[in-house]
């Protein structure tokens, strides 16, 4: 077991006005597994991922990476954000952006260069190494973010709705890219998404969350044939069945949740994004 999440909870504020972004979430991720987390909109998926990634301190429970508790961003974990334009540095070239996390690692210059070039090659951006990120399309920028995570050589990759801001056709390409990268580099992936089809297509296991306060509703193993293919896999009867099952679970949660809860969670998350005591750097 590579990653273990035990009874994770996150509450903003105290007393009667407290917002329970995450209630009680427990599941685990094995080495080499591709796990997708889906849930109704506003159920605190981003909060959950930030807690797992060590960016937020949970109010309850713990996260164990190879048995060690996660109290801050762990070394062998990399995070890919949804907003690529806000996570890539516009004053640096693509190459420098991918190099940035490697600068403080104990590596020789040659090792760093080869990691950067291999990662950019794996995502197909070798020709664009010396461009600026904002000169590239959205899909390409997200590929830079993925390359940056790959060069960092993590054991586990956390992805927070990474393809939500990208058009549907590019999304298909990026989904296949992630699968390819997983096979090539052998990393474990925890992938948060609101796209149900995507969650079934990519994963070995789907974690379905309830509405806020979030808990695990169901863990669904996905035993579709590999390698996955955008046309063949989606034509499988099992795909349709799994997809329908997940869809029904989420729909039921959304009906129960109503409209009030997601806005409360989003506001609480936004307010909590500026930690007290100033911009912690």
């Amino acid at each position: 077991m590579l990653l273990e999440i035990k009874g994770l909870g996150k509450t903003y504020g105290t007393g009667p006005t407290a917002t329970h972004a995450v209630g009680d979430v427990s599941f685990s991720v094995d080495e080499g597994e591709f796990v997708c987390v889906v849930g109704p909109s506003g159920c605190g998926k981003t909060t959950l991922l930030k807690c797992i990634g060590g960016l937020l301190r949970p109010s309850a429970g713990e996260v164990l990476l190879r048995g060690s508790p996660v109290t801050g961003p762990p070394e062998r974990m990399a995070l890919v954000f949804q907003e690529y334009s806000r996570s890539l540095m516009p004053w640096m070239s693509v190459r420098s952006n991918v190099l940035l996390p490697l600068r403080h690692k104990k590596l020789s210059k040659r090792e760093r260069t080869s990691l950067v070039e291999d990662a950019l090659g794996a995502v197909g951006l070798t020709r664009f190494m010396d461009r600026y990120p904002w000169q590239l399309s959205g899909g390409m920028q997200q590929r830079v973010a993925i390359a940056r995570a790959l060069a960092y050589q993590p054991s586990i990759l956390l992805m927070d709705e990474p393809f939500a801001s990208v058009d549907a056709q590019t999304r298909g390409d990026l989904e296949d890219l992630v699968l390819q990268v997983r096979d090539e580099f052998g990393i474990t992936i925890l992938f948060v998404t609101h796209d149900i089809d995507e969650s079934v297509y990519l994963s070995d296991r789907v974690v379905v969350l309830t509405h806020s306060p979030t808990e695990v509703k169901e863990l669904i193993p996905v035993e579709l044939p590999k390698p996955r293919d955008q046309i063949a896999t989606k034509a499988e009867p099992d795909f349709a069945q799994l997809r329908a099952h997940v869809y029904r679970l989420i729909k039921r949660e959304q009906d129960v949740q109503g409209v009030v809860a997601p806005q409360a969670v989003e506001v609480a998350e936004a307010e909590a994004a500026v930690p007290p005591g100033g911009t912690a750097v």
């Binding site: 060590g54 996570s87 994004a273």
Partner: peptide
């Protein structure tokens, strides 16, 4: 400064002096 940039720096464990030199100052 865009909070996501800071989150990125934190998640990649970039040390403070590097953050200031390569992220905070240029931003």
């Amino acid at each position: 400064i865009e909070p996501t940039l800071i989150d990125t720096a934190r998640s990649y464990r970039i040390p403070t002096h590097e953050r200031i030199r390569r992220i905070v100052f240029p931003a």
